[in-house]
Structures are given as C-alpha cells and as structure tokens.
Write a protein that binds this DNA or RNA. Structure first.
Lengths: 140, 140
DNA sequence: CTTGATCCTCTAGTCGCTAGAGGATTTAGC
DNA sequence: GCTAAATCCTCTAGCGACTAGAGGATCAAG
C-alpha cells in the first residue's frame, strides 16, 4: 500500500529531488515517515503528482497549479476560477503557437536557402540579424 | 555617432541591465567608456544586439547565439554549423508546436465543457488529473 | 555480513535575467 | 549658476523551477 519516494518517482516519472522540492515549497503535503525517517506515499500522492506533472507539461506555472489543486480539493465551489486560469493560459498558448509557427517557417526557409556556401551567403545569419545584407561590418 | 547604454536600449528594445549582463557574460564585447566611465556604443552594437534579441525571441539559447555570432564574424567559413544549430532548433520547435497544439485543443475542450457548474463537473480538473472521475479523494 | 542501492539533509549551482542599494554624473528648466 | 530629475555606475542578491553534490544513514540481496 505505502511505498517509497523512489517508487513514487517511478510511478509518476517525476524525479526524486523534484518530489522533495515540491514538498519543500508546499506543492505536496509533507509525507508521513517510517521509523527511519523515510517518506511514505500512497495512491493519492500518485494522483496529485500526476496532476502536477501534467499541468507542468502543459506549461502551467507552480502558482497556477496551486490554485488548480485548491480548486480540485473543493469540488463544491464554482469552477469560475479554474475556467479563468485555463482561459488566460489558452490565450498565452495561442500566442506561443503563433510565434513558434512564424519561427518555424523562418527557420525552415533559412535552412533551405542555406546552400553549401560560405556564411556570407547563408541567409540564417541575415534573417537573425534582421538585415538585408551580409554582416561583414562585424569583422572589425 | 556614439551613444549611451540607455540609447542603445531604446534602439534595440533590450533593457539596460540586460545589456550590462550580456557584456558581463561576454556576449557583447566590453564597451569603450567616456571619461566619466559611461559606456559608449555605435551602430555595430545595435546590429549585434538586434541579432541577439532576435535569436533569443526565436528561442535560441545564449550558447547557440555565441556560436552563431562566431559564425557571422567569420564569413569565410562554411555555414554547416549554422545550419545544424538551426536544424536541431527546428526539430525542437516542431515538438513544442505539436505539444502546444494538443494542449490548446484540450484546454479549449475543457473550457467549453466547463459549464457554470461545480468543480466536480468541471472537466478541466479531470483532464489535468488524467482521470476519468471526479477527484474527491483529494479532500481527505 | 558485506555490498550496493536507496534514502536522508543540507548547501550551492544552473539559466537568463531582474531588482535594489548606494553613489556619481549629466541634462533640463528656471 | 543652481537645483532637481534622469541617467549612469558597481555591487550584491533574488527569481523560478529545478539539479547536483557532499556526507551520512539505512535497507535489500546474495
């Protein structure tokens, strides 16, 4: 039933020091200990940590996750807060996708235009410099 | 011709402390100083800093930028390195876009399914928990 | 009974900045 | 010329979210 921090780590793909760090910052409650001071966990911690990991992967910040966790622990409350966190996050996601898509096109174009030539002919440098000409002035 | 760090900041949209930081880590060469020890810059620094800013916006790390800058200062060399930096960056961008797109769909669905109800009925929590049921076990 | 894996706490380091203290100098208005 | 505000300088410390390592205790397997 109860298992070690290493086992929790294996079950959630969250590294051991990260789990301890989450406990330290109060994102996970302090775990009960064995006689020899080792942390003990159960299924509830697996769930909570998966929730945290998934949220982190989706780009939520720790403070967002704190709020989301607080919500999830008070199911009787309105989901308005959850909704607004998710919504503002969605707007941010949209911005990131848009900018990454632009970047992707730019990078892809740069790479395709970059022949086997010398850097002076390589458009990657030009595009990054936001210049229409070779940046040879940097050589002095 | 020569201008202050504040002016350089205005021309490049890079904050003054960030410029000093870049000098400190050697991303910008140490600027010449006035008699009263103030840094002086010219067009070359505007170019270089724009290059850096643009690269950072595109998600390149400082060390990547160091390499790209070294390339741009040796136009006679092959652009193979530039190309490989950009290519590996492109792969990373693709991964990020894919994961953000999945997230976006998920968030959008969550938000649309999240009625005016209680959190127990709100799918945002469920999706983040990667669970099919309400996480009321968290309440104890 | 020993070896190696795992656990503990603690401090310090990472990256890319950002903020603030405390002081000097420059610029603008009067 | 004088004052007040803006800008500059250096320095140290802090941020988020970990990650690494020291130094030591304990556990599980052969």
């Amino acid at each position: 039933m109860a298992f070690s921090i290493g086992e929790l780590s294996r079950r959630t793909a969250v590294k051991v020091p990260t789990i301890r760090y989450y406990e330290q910052i109060g994102l996970l409650p302090a775990a009960p200990r064995t006689d020899s001071n080792r942390r003990l966990y159960g299924q509830a911690e697996v769930d909570r940590l998966n929730f945290i990991r998934h949220s982190r992967e989706l780009g939520f910040e720790i403070d967002d996750i704190r709020e989301l966790l607080a919500m999830s622990e008070q199911p009787q409350s309105s989901c308005h807060t959850v909704d607004s966190i998710a919504n503002s996050h969605l707007a941010e996601i949209d911005r990131r996708i848009a900018s990454l898509t632009t970047l992707k096109a730019e990078l892809a174009r740069m790479i395709s235009e970059c022949g086997r030539g010398r850097v002076c002919d390589c458009r990657i440098i030009e595009v990054l410099a936001d210049h229409g000409q070779c940046r040879s002035e940097h050589r002095q």
